[in-house]
Design a binder for these strands. Structure first.
Lengths: 125, 125, 125, 125
DNA sequence: GTGGTCTAGACCACA
DNA sequence: GTGGTCTAGACCACG
């Protein structure tokens, strides 16, 4: 688990961490049951405060993507599989589609991009 | 131009304004050359501070989506047509695709959604 | 909003704050739309760090009991009304009922207590 | 005595063990005088550390719900029958009642639930 | 060893 | 003014 953090981004660090773990899980890089790095370890290795990583983990726990095993450690949970995107993500997608259109990206190219990201890392290329 | 603002959203209000104008332009609801509401008017009608609207307009100007005309009015510019998505939007799309996958949304359904948002409001322009 | 905090309790402070606000809302002491004290104000007045109060507010936001209005301040939200108790509360209730029984409390007395707490502060005595 | 432990719960494991034994005693599943499993046995069968089970037993001894008999075994004691709930449980009940109310549960339904849990497992003892 | 909590300060974005 | 974020350290509970 290697994090690429942008300390000058508007997106809070804990959010960047959360996002990259989400992508990691979706891509299969982090398999269900796999142990995540200890909060302190990830913090040190990333040059970030412990509490920042903790916040990211807390978020992911609330989303049901990871759980902390009381016997020590944090592990990837089996996916919740709600079957639909959250309202925020939906709005985000609508906006990005609009931006794609405005930037002159053709429908074809846009859908290719979407497909590429969806399939990224996950078997059925 | 009717704004739907959520004052309890995490997204800053000026960002919501900017986003909705972007979507409005992409959908054709706001045509190139069309005049945007005056800052004061939009602020009053939406119940927000003028500074907030001003910030949104400034953003849009920097993106080249709107311009100030000679007499001080604000109009929709012709699209910049860069031909590609910005880095932020790209990362956003990657994240949303990951979330779609984790929520159990099939590739088919996801692409349908993407297409729907891309086509939303306009023909095939 | 006056908080009674037990700094030697096993229950984390932010949880005590959250719990008391929940009780306050349920009892009607805090009405929907009412403004909650500013994080810093509540922190100072309670002799607690700002982040501790912030954590409590964050929890309540996630539960949908309060929202933060971007124009400044945190307000009580209209109740979500899920119609059923969460799994945790359910287990908690089962345990307390068992303890009541073991302590020799009669069914009658126990139900009277439950009723009293349910009605506490809220109109239909 | 079969324990259902949730290693990803916020509640410490020793607390889960203690709670389930309390419920077991209250329901009559564990009768006064009955012998509890040896610490080592319960620990192995449940996949937890002996220290954890020991902690739970210690707690129960302090509460007077179980006692160590002459030969080192652990047996269920006659109930203490204090006649009232502890302060913690009382606060817990008040909170749960508030949550019930906020979740839209009617007084009737809530009291039905309380009664069901109180009566659970035993007659009217 | 792990995660959880808390403090006392700081800086920033938003409106 | 508000909330949001972050740091550098500390202490504790759990297993």
């Amino acid at each position: 688990m290697l994090l690429r953090l942008d300390f000058s981004s508007q997106l809070p660090i804990y959010r960047q961490i959360r996002d990259q773990i989400v992508v990691g899980i979706a891509s299969g890089e982090l398999a269900p049951g796999e142990k995540l790095p200890a909060i302190r370890a990830l913090a040190e290795q990333s040059g970030v405060n412990m509490m920042t990583v903790s916040k990211a983990y807390t978020l992911l726990k609330q989303e049901g993507l990871i759980t902390t095993d009381r016997r020590g450690g944090t592990v990837v949970a089996g996916s919740p599989e709600s079957g639909e995107l959250g309202a925020h993500s939906l709005e985000g997608l609508r906006l990005i589609a609009a931006e794609a259109r405005l930037s002159g990206l053709s429908e074809e190219d846009f859908l290719l991009l979407c497909r590429e990201f969806y399939c990224e890392g996950g078997g059925e290329t």
